[in-house]
Design a protein around this nucleic acid. Structure first.
Lengths: 338, 338
DNA sequence: TTGAAAGCGATACCAG
DNA sequence: CTGGTATCGCTTTCAA
């Protein structure tokens, strides 16, 4: 790390370091003449200020940490993309922490807790424990939660219960009465609870419509296409088969689509499938889904953090959902009655 | 940024700051007794050292910059994932720079050129200009290129020409003689050249086999599923239709699959399609493809950089390719001759 | 083994 | 408007 320093620039320009710093930071109190001389010196020496030194001196790193569990999941990617856009636009760097295993969760919060690494923290789907939170607050790092609510932290979320309800109502409106649910395991070491909430809204809507909810048609599996496909395969092999399935994520819905295809069950004639999220793959597979504005959520979350960074008080926000109809849902054919 | 400082810990433990620092860094020359006292003080004060101060003092940030163009493309994601894994394992932070537009390319290299931000740089598919390179080298930041070769920089690449050849040979072996190519525009402002190389290998293999290469069946379009679908739609509507298509990326191959479906052209009976990369969506759609080990490439690239960081000389590497056969390719039905 | 002090490279206050 | 200097929080000699 040789690199030219501000002192060398000052010497070259024949001024004090303070003056160079002022030029660097666009202070108005520098004579036009001096400014030009300093700028010239900077150019000849090809000088670039040290971000570290500046950070130590100002107490701001201009970096934001982003905790992203299952970073390769499209829903996460799309949110990170929004974050990246907003951050870059504001001149902040994005420090990415991928969390795949529960141990990494703690590690991520710890490593970012280190003072002086980041100015703020964005956490996707994951909340800090009270202890971690205390530590983070102690270092004065503002936090904004994305896709996760919290008592004392601002967050940007969707109403998962309502989303589940919307999915159920879409199917009910089409005339379905034999509807299954396929979601994540609700006991998970990350504390994810979206799937459980979506299930609640879904069940509540069926109940309200007087449609029976069969326990064997409420499936909970580890998140992923394969597990979803296997579960759906089993369900489609039964004598009593649902006419529609609500999967609590697009990834799982695609697993259901695969199972249907393998079992020669036509979609949407014999089976309607609705997912959740509206990731790119949903469009690719023609999947009807409850859409949440993923990228926008990321961008808004970053904006909220940036505002918190500049001292503003920020309020939690809730983003709207909408059913996007594609080719995977239709009225039931009622094969059973034929 | 209040936070406890090393001085307070030293006071609490009744030792000098130097000693605390030694304990922090596991120096052997600290008596067991002193070490315990310091550790106790650290615990009571819940002290966390400042990463910035440490970085300024040691000249190492323990952060690596990753330039990722089109970060949402699965091929990039999968590589970033490998990078993230390798970096986290080594205690390095990953600073992500998404580049979507050509202007951002320069901006990315510039912002990371700032001294003191990162210890090393990983660039995916993008190479620095000579000028940018000089600047980066001047600050002593080692660089490793992923998916891009360079005269004076270590890189980890695949042989795109060979990959194109493999795709062609797979189709030739199946008996196809009427084969089209669909790839990226070769004049692009990022200087991406994989698609061009894949095309070269493809054409060379056809030439070698004495199979005619029709200019109207060499399609170059902006990268993306939609453009690929549109191009394929046009081609499939022609009177003379190919029996097979090699798309230079899985994303484009999927566009071709969609066009075929819309045009009622059955795959693989009436049209074989082979892609490139083997991203997750290829498996999802049953696409035959030339596979490159994306995640592994990312991880190895990060390893190379880490080694360079520790002063080792690193050699460029080239990773192997393999055709993964799925459901989208088969011998031609030769409908034309019937 | 340990304390004291000199950097690391900026910013920002205080005089002038 | 500008120069000098203390300061940020740590690491790393240098003596003791």
């Amino acid at each position: 790390m040789r690199g030219t320093t501000i002192a060398e620039v000052a010497a070259e320009a024949g001024v004090g370091v303070g003056t160079v710093s002022r030029v660097l930071n666009g202070s108005p109190s520098v004579s036009e003449d001096t400014r030009r001389r300093v700028l010239a010196a900077i150019a000849t020496l090809d000088y670039q200020p040290s971000a570290t030194a500046r950070a130590l001196s100002t107490g701001r790193t201009h970096a934001v940490g982003v905790i992203a569990p299952f970073f390769t999941h499209s829903s996460v990617i799309e949110r990170v993309r929004g974050i990246s856009r907003a951050l870059a636009g504001a001149g902040y760097q994005l420090i990415l922490l991928d969390v795949e295993r529960p141990e990494q969760r703690a590690e991520a919060f710890r490593s970012l807790g280190v003072r002086g690494r980041i100015d703020g923290l964005l956490s996707i789907s994951l909340a800090p424990t009270d202890r971690e939170l205390r530590r983070l607050q102690q270092t004065g790092v503002p936090i904004v939660l994305i896709d996760r609510a919290h008592d004392s932290l601002p967050s940007i979320t969707i109403d998962d219960v309502e989303g589940g309800r919307m999915a159920a109502e879409h199917l009910l409106d089409l005339g379905h009465r034999r509807i299954a649910f396929l979601g994540d395991e609700e006991e998970n070491r990350f504390g994810f609870d979206s799937s459980a909430h979506r299930r609640e809204g879904f069940v509540a809507a069926l109940d309200a419509a007087g449609v029976p909810v069969l326990p064997e048609w409420i499936l909970r599996r580890p998140h992923g296409r394969d597990a979803a496909r296997d579960a759906a395969t089993g369900m489609l092999a039964g004598t009593e088969r649902p006419t529609a399935v609500f999967a609590s994520s697009d990834v799982q819905a695609i697993g259901v689509l695969e199972a249907a295809q393998a079992a020669q069950v036509t979609v949407p004639e014999e089976l309607s499938v609705i997912g959740f999220d509206n990731v790119e793959a949903a469009e690719l597979t023609g999947l009807t889904t409850v859409a949440q504005p993923l990228e926008e959520i990321g961008a808004l979350g970053a904006d909220m953090l940036l505002r918190a960074l500049s001292g503003e008080a920020v309020e939690s926000r809730r983003m709207p959902l909408a059913v996007v109809e594609r080719a995977s849902t239709a009225p039931p054919v009622l094969a059973g009655r034929r």
